[in-house]
Each structure stands twice: as structure tokens, then as C-alpha cells.
Design a protein around this nucleic acid. Structure first.
Lengths: 358, 358
DNA sequence: AAAAAATTTTGGATCGATTCAAATCCTCAT
DNA sequence: ATGAGGATTTGAATCGATCCAAAATTTTTT
């Protein structure tokens, strides 16, 4: 019956010290600085530890004294599975992982859709800093994270307020690249498949309404497209724009709309690879060939874009490098610049080509 | 110059208490049990906190007292990116995430290829328990994890020693399902594309050598195949078996070997979907149709298997459910059974069909 | 107005380790 | 044998909070 006691309380370093007949200071050294303890004592303490079933110094205790957790937190207001499912997130996480592997830092995922949970999780995360994924213009995790007064980087700009450090791309320049590419093939009739400008909205829209967009990334991309077209002498006001939700139903709706117009587009500017890929499927199902009948350029440079048929021409963000930079920024803050604008790149594959002879 | 001091040391709860003129006990309550503090005092403390720039109770401190971290650790001896790249891992992680989301638990990834780093990371991970991915029969993380004396579950059996809790499948039964399916189509000439039996080995092999296999999962699958074929009256000893490394070069080598045999197989038993998919590409490139000329059944039930062409018939493990179970086992240990054998399932798609008329 | 009950606040103990200055123990040369 | 000097060991202080029994205060009841 006395045996029950052993299971009741975990063994502490102090217990080991007592059992071995040394001070707790020495016992501590046996585990953390074994070289300064005399061998005989070291063995004795280790033996005592074994006998008692000591699990080694509890990191909880060590942590308080050490101050540093040695882990990076990655926060976002999505379900945790976002990190394993979303193609963009996955590549960025790979980049972060690379740095963590190299430096031996841990990786803690902090996330929740529920606002209260999210707040609690961010407040109580044991990390040295945060990398915040701002999905769909939801700034809540940014606010919460900032409260912790730990180093943090926001992925994606669009949150211009204050001088918080962020890593992002020049959305407008990316959009220009896409439009230029299509223009070079001789296209004159365009359609824009946009991402959300505001929380949850969708449907046909005008450049005017984009003025007040909540999501500045979306707005910048649109302006990039439109300005480039206008400079090529195209009536930008006449270009159909449809706000989608980056999901199948709204993208389908947008295509139904565009292709029932009197003059349907021959070139589609998609604000995400996802949209572009959904559009390609829709077009193929309706017997239109890509790029034979309709050309399309995506945005993001997600890996899947290379496998789809036809392989998608797109504007690639250096996602992996962004992850690396973000991790570095947390690991040695101060070193990193406040705002890092990453280069985007036009990746030419097969979804865009010359306007078809008619 | 006096201002410098503010940045030098982070504000502690005790500082706030002093500034607000209350005891540290009360200050603590303001943050953790606000309802038991008189409103006027509460406001005063909060004001003091704001004025000092207090970031809220430091979780490091709270942790020690609370004892529970409220986070699950997931460990494996792979680079961290394994969690974001590997299809099997990703689905399992999704399952784990689901439970974490539901219970508000955090998720810490603990991993390293370097043995020393791995040991340190596991020893110092701030988690309430571990889910261990045993990849390729590398038990090191199991040993390390066990030392922590925290709840832990191993994914994948094959580690029979001791009564540690594990979640896995009946590999042999799964293999039988695959062989039966092919047999039912009338196939009599088989080839086995195996996974590693031992660390790093590869090449043609015999059932005999499998006896001493390090990786029992691989061995069990092989026995499942062979026994089923033997029961159907096929000379199991004559079935070519090739040990691959689950990568392109070794799978290609295995196919070169099989299809240069005097009687090449019409049915391939692949021990992983990855192998099967690589094989399909190889066959198609050589003008053989699947399943017209050669039928193939995979193993695992990875999502990609559904998208490939032709869609792969495979033995599916309930990966997501395994993740869920594992998370539950950590979150309330004791509840969970020691050893959970999950059902496997034959998922019939299009990569296996009747033996071709010749 | 006093007593009883309820509400707040206090401050010491605790969580489990690490750190470091001071104390002690050895070894070796003189 | 003695003292110097190096190698070990000790134990109090600390990290930043939470908990809780007891004290203080306020409110309610008689």
C-alpha cells in the first residue's frame, strides 16, 4: 500500500538531491553542467535519479529561470488544420521549418477560429515571438499578438498602421506583370476574377467600389491590372470585375457572369491560383480550351499550379523565402528590417497564349 | 537618460501591484479572476498596468504553478517540414488539429534529424504529452519520449516491446485485402514492390530475408500478400519481390527488374501509394496501360491517390481518425486503450482490373 | 449598536529548476 | 605539517506567477 505514493507525485530534483545526499545545487549541475561535478558524485546522483524514476529536469522549472523558450509561435485566425491543408501556408511553413531545424528552435502552432480561444491561446503561448498569418484581412491575431510585447512579424502587408514589421510583396507590381503578359499576346478583352475586397462580399463590382476595400492586397492587385490595361489603351471601366470568395461556387458564378456578357473575355486575370484552377476546370467542362480560347494568369505560385493541366502561368511569391525571413526576424529581432518587400516573379507556363484566330 | 530603464526590464506583475498600491495577490486576481476583485480596485490595477506597459501575466510564470501546459507535442525524427510535406503526416495532423481546435489545446512540433538536437528538443519541449511518428522504424524518438514520463502514443505498431500505447493498423490484413482484390480479377502473375525491410537497404529480395526485418510493418505486409497468394495456389516463392526506398530511383529500378523477367507480372502489389503512383507513371511512359496491361494496388490511402490517373485502388488507413484518437489519448490519458488497432479498408478505384486478354 | 455573514484583500508558501558568491575540501609544494 | 591554490559543493536568491488561509473590511441581520 505504501507503493502507491510513488505514483502520486512526480519526482523533483530536490528529491533526487536528498536521496543522493547532495545539495540541490549539485544535483542541478549533474544534469546541466555535468563536467563540473566530481565523477563519483555524479554517478551517485544519477543512480539516485534512476532509483527514484526521475524524468530529468522539468522544462517548466528550467524555463522560468532561463527566460527563453526557444520556440517560434505561428498564429492565425483559422482552424489549426489550415497549416497542413492550405498550399500557401504549407510552403511558408516549410521555409520557417528550415530555419527552426537549422537553429534547433521549436515550432508552436497557435490558432483558433473562435475569438476567445484565439485570444487565450495567443496570450498563453510559450514562445519567443510570433509569426502572424493574416488571412483574409482578419487583423485580430495581429492585435492580440502585439499585446504580448514579443517580437512578431506579420506576413502580408496591408496593415500599414503603425510601424510593425511585416513581410509581403508588391501586389500592384505583380498584377502589372500578369496584365502585361496577357497584353503581349494581343489580348484586348479582359475579365478580372478578384478576391474579396471586404469580408464575405461577392458579385460583380466596379473599380470605384474598390476604393474603400478592407483588404488592401486585393485592391492593389486590381489597380495593378486596371492601370496596366488603361496604359495599353483599353477602357478599364469596361473590364468586367467579379469579386469571388476563392471558392468553387462564387468562382463559377463569376464565370457564368463573364461568359454571358455580349463580348466575353479572351483573357482572365485571376487574383489567386485557386481561382485560376477552378476557372480552368469550368472552361474545359464547357468545351473551351485553355489557352486556345481563353488565356488565364493566376497569382501566388502555389505548387499545385505546376501540376494542373494546362500548367498555370502565374505570378509567384517567394513563399518559402518569406517563411525563412520571418523565422529569422523572430530568432534575432532587431536585426531584421521592419518591412521587407519580397520580389514577385512571372512564371510562364502554358495557360496563357496568343489570342485565338477567329 | 532615465527613460532607458523602462526598456531594460520587462514589467512584472509585482511592479504593477506596487504601482497600483495593492498586494501582488490582488493584482494577480485582476488578471486571472477579475470577478472577485472590487471594480474600483480592478480599474486602478488595470490603469497601472497600462501605464507601465504590462504585457499581461507571463505564461512562463503561470505555467510553473499551473502544471499543465495545455499543448500536445508531436515528435518525429524527420526534418520539421515533414509535417507539412508528407501526405500521410498531413492527414494525421489534420485529425490531431481537429481535437486541438475543439479542446483549445496547442500543438507543438518537435523534431530534428540530428540525434542530439532531437534529444534536447524532446527533453525540453513544453507539452503535456507526445504523439510520436515512427517513420521508417526509427525508434529513437520513442525512447527519448518515454524518458519524459509524460503520456505518449506511438503511431504505427511494430514496436511491440513493452506495453506502450500505440495506434496502428493490421498490416497483414490490409495486404491480404490487396492481394484478394487482384486475385479476384484473375491475376496469376504478381510482383511485390516493397518498402524497406531494413534501414537503407534496397534491391531484389526473398521472403526468407524478411524474417529478420527491422521494420515489422513491411514484413507483415509482405506476409499478408504472400500468404494470400499461396492460399490461392500460387507459388509464393516465385513471386518477385523488390525492396524499394519509397523514392523514384529505387522504384524505377524495381520496375526495370520486374519487367525484364521472362514472365513479367500483370499485377503489382505496392506497399505504399507513393510507390504505386511512381510505378503508374513508369508504366504509362513505357506504353503500358493501367489497368489494361498491368493492375496495381497501393497502400495507405493518401489523398493524392484519388487524383492520379488512373485513380489508385488502395488499402486505406483511417489516418485522420488515427490522429484524432492519438490526440484524445494525450488529452485524457488513462481513458485510452493501450493499443488501438484501426480498421483498414479496400478503396476500389481504377488502377486494378481484369487480367488483359492476350 | 452589536453580532453575524458576506465580500475583499493580504502576504506567505509554492511550483521546479538555475545561478553564483561563499564555504569547504583536496592536492601538492615547501 | 602548513599554506596556497584549484576543484567541488553548498545554500540562499531568483525567475513570475498562482493559491489559499487568515485578516480586514463591508454589508446585512437582529
Amino acid at each position: 500500500m505504501a507503493r502507491r505514493a510513488t505514483a502520486i507525485k512526480p519526482v523533483r530534483l530536490a528529491d533526487v538531491a536528498k536521496a543522493a545526499g547532495v545539495s540541490h545545487g549539485t544535483a542541478s549541475n549533474v544534469f546541466s553542467h555535468p563536467e563540473i561535478v566530481r565523477e563519483e558524485v555524479r554517478e551517485r546522483v544519477k543512480a539516485a535519479a534512476d532509483a527514484l524514476g526521475y524524468a530529468g529536469p522539468d522544462p517548466k522549472g528550467r524555463l522560468l529561470r532561463a527566460g527563453k523558450v526557444n520556440a517560434i509561435g505561428v498564429a492565425t485566425a483559422e482552424p489549426l488544420s489550415y497549416f497542413f491543408d492550405d498550399p500557401f501556408a504549407r510552403v511558408v511553413m516549410s521555409g520557417i521549418s528550415e530555419i527552426c531545424d537549422a537553429t534547433g528552435a521549436g515550432l508552436s502552432l497557435v490558432s483558433a477560429i473562435n475569438g476567445e480561444h484565439l485570444a487565450w491561446n495567443i496570450q498563453s503561448a510559450l514562445v519567443d515571438g510570433f509569426i502572424v498569418f493574416c488571412v483574409e484581412g482578419n487583423w485580430q491575431p495581429v492585435y492580440l499578438t502585439r499585446e504580448r510585447k514579443l517580437p512578431f512579424v506579420v506576413l502580408d502587408f496591408g496593415y500599414d498602421e503603425g510601424a510593425l514589421s511585416a513581410i509581403g510583396i508588391d501586389n500592384k507590381a505583380g498584377a502589372r506583370l500578369a496584365a502585361d503578359h496577357l497584353l503581349a499576346f494581343g489580348h484586348r478583352r479582359f475579365g478580372v476574377l478578384a478576391l474579396n475586397f471586404d469580408e464575405g462580399s461577392s458579385g460583380p463590382m466596379t473599380a470605384l467600389r474598390a476604393e474603400g476595400a478592407t483588404y488592401s492586397g486585393t485592391r492593389d492587385r486590381l489597380y495593378g491590372y486596371l492601370e496596366t490595361l488603361a496604359e495599353a489603351g483599353i477602357d478599364a471601366a469596361g473590364v468586367p470585375i467579379y469579386e469571388t470568395g476563392n471558392d468553387v461556387p462564387t468562382v463559377h458564378a463569376s464565370l457564368d457572369y463573364m461568359f454571358s456578357l455580349p463580348e466575353p473575355p479572351t483573357a482572365l486575370l485571376a487574383m489567386s491560383d485557386r481561382i485560376a484552377m477552378i476557372a480552368i476546370d469550368w472552361l474545359k467542362e464547357r468545351g473551351m480550351s485553355v489557352p486556345g480560347d481563353v488565356s488565364i494568369v493566376g497569382f501566388d505560385g502555389v505548387p499545385e499550379a505546376a501540376w494542373c493541366k494546362p500548367p498555370l502561368t502565374t505570378i509567384a511569391q517567394p513563399m518559402r523565402e518569406m517563411g525563412r525571413r520571418a523565422a529569422h526576424a523572430i530568432l534575432d529581432p532587431g536585426q531584421a528590417e521592419r518591412r521587407q518587400e519580397m520580389p514577385i516573379e512571372l512564371v510562364v507556363r502554358e495557360s496563357a497564349g496568343p489570342v485565338s484566330a477567329r
